[in-house]
Design a protein around this nucleic acid. Structure first.
Length: 290
DNA sequence: TTGGTAATCGACA
DNA sequence: TGTCGATTACCAA
């Protein structure tokens, strides 16, 4: 194994589990009416039930049974319904460069408008790298100001993924640099390394409206969810839910800015740039850790 | 329930 | 200016 490949696999040894999990989620979603048993699923995947059992607990922190429930529509509804405490209202004062997200991964963020970004010209260097993550391959992009982009890809689609991200900031100069991105990967996907003492530095590059939407997302605690209209209300434009949806979809730092915690009003998972299956996986994974 | 549709607003061409 | 969403609420079969 060469040095780079080693770097990739060292991050999260359980990375390959995602492939199994992804297929299970797909199966369940297809015929969720039948409530397939563990045996049925294991059978369809050509694995033994015990093996599958082990994979799940390792990946999700939940028994398969609990996991199945977590991925179900009912559970998503519950995430929304348990809204006794004022979700978005509380947390922290979120101002520019303030720490946010009281309940899990702390980040400090600064905003950069497209204008500012452009003014810097092509001088800005973005270092990127792919790393194994619990949700497939993660493309991480950093500038000297902090984390600027986080995207996901299945193995084999790296090129498309990189293109998807890099065309958002056409003027930048892109350099592959796993040494630079690896520490981010290690930190982001390992909840035991989340701390408020040393928040993760993030640069939000987008329009004023988009940044406001993303700040709102940062306030959603782990294992909870809100609707698109909740967000619209939070930023003071209750009727702009449609525009909010569009802005959420452009979130360049997925997972860290938890756009997977935005659901339709009835608990449906409406959309996700990197695939609905991945959105389900994230919610299930968080359910096991919340 | 399911399916069509108008209202609404930021981004982009 | 005109089009297009990771939305919603409402109304008709």
């Amino acid at each position: 194994m060469n040095a780079i490949a080693k770097l990739k696999t060292d991050i999260t040894p359980d990375g390959p589990d995602y492939n199994t999990v992804r297929r299970v989620i797909e199966l369940i979603t297809e015929d969720y009416r039948d409530q397939p048993s563990l045996e049925t699923i294991a059978d369809r995947l050509g694995q033994s039930p015990t093996q599958l059992q082990k994979t799940f607990t390792r990946w999700a922190g939940l028994s398969p049974k609990a996991f199945l429930q977590a991925v179900t529509l009912d559970h998503a509804k519950r995430l929304l319904r348990e809204e006794d405490l004022p979700l978005l209202e509380t947390s922290f004062e979120v101002g520019l460069s303030g720490p946010s997200r009281l309940h899990d991964l702390f980040v400090t963020h600064e905003a950069m408008s497209p204008g500012e970004w452009k003014a810097k010209g092509g001088g800005l260097v973005i270092r990127y790298g792919f790393h194994i993550s619990p949700f497939g391959l993660a493309l991480i992009m950093v500038t000297d100001r902090g984390l600027a982009g986080l995207a996901f890809s299945d193995s084999g689609d790296e090129k498309a993924c990189l293109e998807d991200m890099s065309c958002r900031w056409p003027n930048a100069q892109y350099v592959e640099d796993l040494q630079a991105t690896m520490p981010y990967a290690a930190r982001i996907f390992e909840p035991s390394k989340w701390s408020s003492e040393q928040p993760l530095r993030v640069v939000l590059i987008g329009t004023d409206f988009q940044v406001r939407v993303w700040e709102s997302l940062l306030k959603i605690p782990m294992g909870r969810a809100v609707t698109y209209s909740d967000i619209a209300r939070d930023i003071g434009q209750p009727t702009a839910m449609r525009a909010v949806g569009a802005a959420v979809g452009r979130n360049p730092v997925s997972f860290v800015v938890p756009c997977h915690r935005a659901l339709g009003k009835n608990g449906d998972l409406t959309g996700y740039h990197w695939g609905l299956t991945r959105k389900r996986a994230m919610l299930g994974w968080e359910a096991g850790r919340a």
